[in-house]
Amino acid sequence: METLLAIVIGLLYAAGVYLLLRRSIVKLILGIMFFSHATNLLIFVAGGLHKGQPQFATDGINAVSANPTDPLPQALILTAIVIGFGITAFFLALMYRFYQATGTEDLDELKEGENK
């Protein structure tokens, strides 16, 4: 499973990179979202995969499941997701303004506009 997940993560990153290298600004945002998905998954897998029940501390001593999922990466990812939402929204607004101001979605026009 780890091997398969590794390949999937690689694929997600590849998709992200490919989209980031497009000239269209909409695809740029999709690329960034792929990147954040891939990174969340990467952190999760790096913490170790353990199938089954979520881990909760029981009263007293730590006597939960024998093979618990690491809670620390989860906490990291949880905030990363919410922040990822904020970033996506910000990019979306930025893109919208860019499109409004320039009338194009071609990022290369940024360069040409600068030279005018």
Binding site: V82, F85, G86, A89, L92, A93, Y96
Partner: peptide, 16 residues
């Protein structure tokens, strides 16, 4: 905060 932020963002985008 999360509630406010998300409502702010999406309302603003929707109004646009």
């Amino acid at each position: 905060t999360v509630w406010g932020v998300i409502v702010t963002i999406i309302f603003n985008v929707m109004e646009e």
